[in-house]
Design a protein around this nucleic acid. Structure first.
Lengths: 223, 223, 223, 223
DNA sequence: GATGAATGAGATTTCATTCAT
DNA sequence: GATGAATGAAATCTCATTCAT
């Protein structure tokens, strides 16, 4: 978030000499952010000290402040950075012209792989824990992440109903039926697997979820 | 700002009859627990100071230590006390001999009323946020709450399949399909309604969830 | 500044038992303020650490925060408290009906005793050093201290001129001629005596100042 | 915010002729000193960070250390450099053979112009604020600046008395009567004008001061 | 010579916990 | 039992100083 434009320009200019150091410098913010996300995910915002984060990132405490104004800004930056690259992905798939059931299947089947990305899985948990303390961030998440997912899913359902592919349900409410098991899967992994190794079979969960969902939404066989 | 109002009220109570004071005294632990739960739910364990809790409970900070060994014990006690009375309720309904769809319907329809209870709704959120920091508590929750709910639901599904009331699905995985939308509803209320007043229509959600679920689990129509 | 009203009421109520402790508590803020003023006077606001102040006041660092919200508030409170009791004194002498030269004499002669008071002498130095960093405090000092002194002195001079006791001068500008040597005396003591023991004979300074001033302001001998 | 403007300007200079750069390089220390003096004057020694100074001087923080061993040395150098050129001026006027009143008049009349020099005005304020933390510097100031001024003024007064131009007063004490209003004028400008725009009419102040002083010191009209 | 990223010591501030009353 | 003043350990944050480039 800080000084990115200027330094890049200079890096190009100097090119040869200080390349390694420069690359290091450019990498610092994301190294720190990664360490911080890990730490926040494990212990929560408040319980995670800057000492921990600094140590995990392999820098001194003071260095954190070169890149983030304070702990809260670090947290917000970390969450935003974890989300931003993914937000775009949502949209591009939205316009698909496949039948609704096929689209839902694609969406749900992709989940196990998506969840495996370590950075992303922690976000919902952090949002649930800290929404009250970071209202601004909560609003961002609500609009940019949940809002988009919601539009996407509701669009699929609504078009499915119009085309007669799905039976008539309240699309708003059905959104929760579609995503809830997926979210619970992420939360479960972050909450209970961390310590007790209560492994959850996400594949099976998604398979069963999809089966029940598609049947549940299916148009009554020719009647 | 420093809890003046509360203490004055107490001073008055003290002056009154011994009986009222006695009742008050016996109530102290649960009053404190209630205040603590409220506070923890709003801000999380670490961000919630004992000053806040004491002020909210209308007692002095020192008094907290008469009833709870330290902040962690207070947290654990608070969570346990919120859960214990509910745990028994689960079991008694488990033996029901109703058909599986009817049992699921009863379970899901009861949800809106259940999560209106202010104390209970905060627990899942707190568990998600703090499981990592309170492994012992997480284990308790996993076994005594989730475990029981799981046995109950899985039992219903399994018997439903055996009796031919439900079609054949993986009961373990179906458990998530049953409870996920319900949990997400609680979490949503705790996470986003607090500030943005993004009111969620839990009734509609449950109705739609039930409709989809029962269809999704239904045995193929007479074949 | 904090919680004074409530505690006093209670102190009366409890009266007997906790007298010593209570007296201690009531005394704390001024003990701390005294230590802080000493420390600030010696080293300046920024160079004086809360560790120093706490040690000098014989309390722990945390205790400072029971009575003052932060270091800046402590500073402001310390300056204000050192000034407030003195401000009233100014006014009462203002209405005097003595001849102007006599009034000036009384004012200037009182100075050596006034600046012997250790608490008061440090204030002008601190104001000069920190006015830029504490604009609000500077305004308070300007209005409540300098402003009053100014009105007083200008009033004396103006009336003196009207009555023909003093010759005609610009009262605004003459104010500085009256007070400047007195202020410089205080500043000198705070600035150079502290270390080099360059003792300044304030009595002689005031005597000479008065002699020159009264002659300088005297009406031309009957002409 | 981070001194981008300054560095760009320099980059351009670097590209130009060697001569200009050279001149720039030689000027560095005094540019830095000027920036530092400004900054110290505004906020005081401790409250003024090297970041501020570097930014104001248009150099990087590291560069400061090429010219000054550390912050304290920078401060001392800055004060000394502001004073040194002026010290010589004092002496040369000391030997004047004018009558004492005329010499005092010249001295005091020169003050408004002297004060206007921005660099010089800050020194007394800084000395008052920091004498306790820089005893060595205080001694230097006491001897080289105040001491010289004192010798000068006392010499004038003493010779004035001897020649019968002034009446008999304690020259040591009279020194304060001469300089105090002038010093207070500087201090006032540095302390209160900075923010509240409480403009002080230094000309009027000096005029009135001179009038009172000369009358106050004047030999009794032939009696 | 000049830079500015990095450091770590030290500052302020918070808060769970204790204990005299 | 109840209080709340006091503590001190630990947290966040700042900044003078260093040093690889």
């Amino acid at each position: 978030m800080r000084s990115s434009g200027g330094t890049k320009a200079k890096a190009k200019a100097k090119a040869g000499s200080g390349a390694r150091w420069r690359r290091r410098k450019d990498a610092r913010p994301s190294e720190i952010a990664a360490a911080a996300l890990e730490c926040f995910a494990e212990r929560g915002f408040a319980a995670c000290s800057l000492d921990d984060i600094a140590a995990r990132a392999g820098v001194s405490k003071g260095t954190l402040y070169l890149y983030f104004r304070n702990k809260e800004e670090l947290f917000k930056a970390v969450v935003r950075q974890a989300l931003l690259p993914r937000i775009a992905l949502f949209e591009e798939k939205a316009a698909a012209t496949d039948p609704a059931p096929r689209q839902l299947e694609r969406f749900i089947s992709a989940w196990p792989a998506l969840i495996a990305a370590p950075h992303l899985g922690a976000i919902p948990k952090l949002m649930i824990a800290e929404a009250g303390n970071f209202p601004e961030l909560a609003r961002f998440y609500l609009e940019e992440v949940i809002g988009r997912a919601r539009s996407l899913i509701i669009g699929i359902i609504r078009r499915g109903i119009e085309r007669g592919e799905l039976r008539r349900v309240d699309p708003e409410a059905a959104f929760f039926s579609v995503v809830a098991p997926l979210l619970i899967a992420v939360l479960w992994k972050q909450t209970f697997e961390r310590q007790d190794k209560q492994a959850l079979d996400v594949e099976a969960l998604c398979r069963t979820h999809l089966a029940i969902l598609l049947r549940g939404l299916a148009q009554d066989a020719k009647r």
